[in-house]
Simulated assay, not measured.
Amino acid sequence: MRIAIALALIPTIAQPDCTTDAMLVFDGSTSMVDSSLGIQGLPKIAEAQRAMARALPEIEDVRRVGLMIYGPQQVGDACEGISLQFLPIEKSAKPILDATRSFAPGGLTPLTAAVARAAEVMNYRTDPGVIVLLTDGSETCGGRPCALGAQLADQAYDLTVHVIGFQLNPHDALFQWNNPEQEFGDDNVARCLADATGGMYVTTETIDELTAALRSTLGCPLLGRLGTGSQTPG
């Protein structure tokens, strides 16, 4: 047992400082109301909220987190629904949960523009930061995540982008619609953002898996490996 615990702690040495400010970029697009892939029969957004309710109270003790929501548009273009809820704050669990419960999913998936905006508000050229993109689909607004990933890697002071896919369906036609960098059968093209910046790309299907992924990307590495029996996604 002592050996196993020691080995589990070794990878935390090389991990970035878990006190670096982070931004959660949350998918609020129309597809988040789908319940066909959820094993509990709940809409995806409800399952995502349950996972956040488990993970965020632990995470808020070790990191300040902000929130950007993309998808729901106020008026006009279905690709313009990107809203900064708040910059990284202490004790962010309740504000994040309240914000993600206060809207009805809608619109398309401008995930590239949402990550770009999150990077800008976090002053990525001069300040360290972490962005966690949560998405249930791929880009559908013509954005180019691979090009953005290369730009962030070239210009950022110290920015890591993690990508969490939740109940992805790559065979859905929307997975490739207005998504110029996507090739059929590939991983979600948003993986480029993680690969270019040294982040994690994790696919999740269940509330438990999503909870573990949030702990691993937003919390201290120790939370993802030893917290409440969860395992760090590979």
Rank of each mutant, 00 (worst) to 15 (best):
I3W: 11
I3S: 13
A4Q: 07
A4I: 02
A6P: 01
A6F: 11
L7V: 08
A8V: 00
A8I: 03
L9H: 01
L9W: 00
I10W: 05
P11F: 05
I13W: 07
A14S: 11
P16Q: 06
P16E: 10
C18K: 06
T19H: 07
T19E: 13
D21G: 08
A22K: 02
A22H: 01
M23D: 00
M23A: 06
L24M: 02
F26Y: 10
S29E: 11
M32R: 15
M32Y: 07
D34F: 07
D34W: 08
D34G: 03
S36H: 05
G38A: 02
G41Y: 05
G41L: 03
P43T: 14
K44D: 01
A46W: 00
A46G: 01
E47D: 12
E47P: 01
Q49I: 12
R50P: 09
R50A: 15
A51M: 05
M52N: 08
M52V: 07
A53C: 06
A53H: 04
A55L: 09
A55I: 10
L56H: 02
E60F: 02
V62G: 11
V62E: 12
R63W: 04
V65I: 08
G66N: 06
L67H: 09
M68I: 15
Y70W: 13
G71Q: 08
G71F: 03
P72W: 04
Q73R: 09
Q73H: 07
Q73Y: 10
G76K: 12
G76M: 06
D77N: 15
A78H: 13
E80N: 15
E80D: 15
G81H: 05
I82Y: 10
S83T: 15
S83Y: 05
L84R: 12
Q85T: 11
Q85P: 00
F86H: 14
F86S: 11
P88C: 04
I89K: 10
E90S: 14
P95S: 11
P95A: 08
I96S: 10
I96H: 01
I96W: 01
